[in-house]
Design a protein around this nucleic acid. Structure first.
Lengths: 136, 136
DNA sequence: TATTGTTATACTCTATAACTATA
DNA sequence: TATAGTTATAGAGTATAACAATA
């Protein structure tokens, strides 16, 4: 079949994203983590005390949609919500959260390593900087 | 805020995809086209007589989900379903479909051009081949 | 007055299962 | 027996509007 779509970077970006995110999702599933859960866990680990609002802005998730995400992490015993003032809460990892974070990072590091290995060596180092210019 | 996610190609792939697809979606909206509609229209135009099943396999959309998509295109007068045998239908563009296709391709070509322009010249030619290896 | 956290809700996209009819 | 087209449905993910309480 003739496929003009293959010459479109945007189309290939979408297909590559779909394929890679499906793969990552299936690797995180045994840890009972979604991709957004993993992103949040990593950022809370790197920024203890961050608020839900600031975290949502960083990973581009609406405030309203942060609520079920953080509820999930809290109910799993991975984070606590510590009041900062009467309005804000600082998010912190629990001991279980730090252990889960280590497991998540191990999965993601392996995933990212294999992702880059799929890219031919002559293109490999260009991928990350190219992608970063498309949204930052 | 410290953000370890920025060093992950997979994460940047997702963010780049979200940003670019949101942009493309907003450019296709005035044409009353979704991205999958546009992909289907392009492939039907390039492969007259293709079946719904073959088209779905090519653009990775389940058979079941092709139905509302093709209904949309047919009700908009853009395609016809021409029986091949008692089981299959060949998809064809109508005159309106060919006109819509031209408009869609114009929008996408401009979008793709601007996408590539955002990528620094030293990385630009590496993007498409790198992305293609991630799903083909 | 702007921001935080929250609730409720709707919409899109996608996945799955099942069915009929035909190759 | 495998495939094409279809229907119905359920689950994610996300977007929007509104609210109370606080900075």
């Amino acid at each position: 079949m003739h496929d003009p779509l293959l010459s479109y970077p945007g189309y290939c970006l979408r297909r590559a994203n779909n394929a890679m995110m499906a793969e990552l999702g299936s690797r995180l599933a045994p840890l009972e983590m979604r991709q957004t859960d993993a992103s949040a866990l990593i950022l809370i680990g790197a920024n203890p005390g961050v608020t839900a609002s600031a975290l949502g802005r960083r990973i581009d998730i609406q405030r309203a949609n942060m609520v079920p995400l953080l509820n999930r992490l809290e109910e799993a015993g991975l984070i606590i919500r510590a009041p900062i003032d009467g309005k804000s809460q600082g998010l912190e990892l629990t001991k279980e959260g730090r252990e889960k974070l280590a497991a998540v990072v191990a999965v993601i590091d392996e995933f990212e390593r294999e992702l880059l290995e799929r890219v031919p060596p002559e293109h490999r180092d260009h991928l990350l900087p190219a992608l970063q210019t498309l949204w930052r």
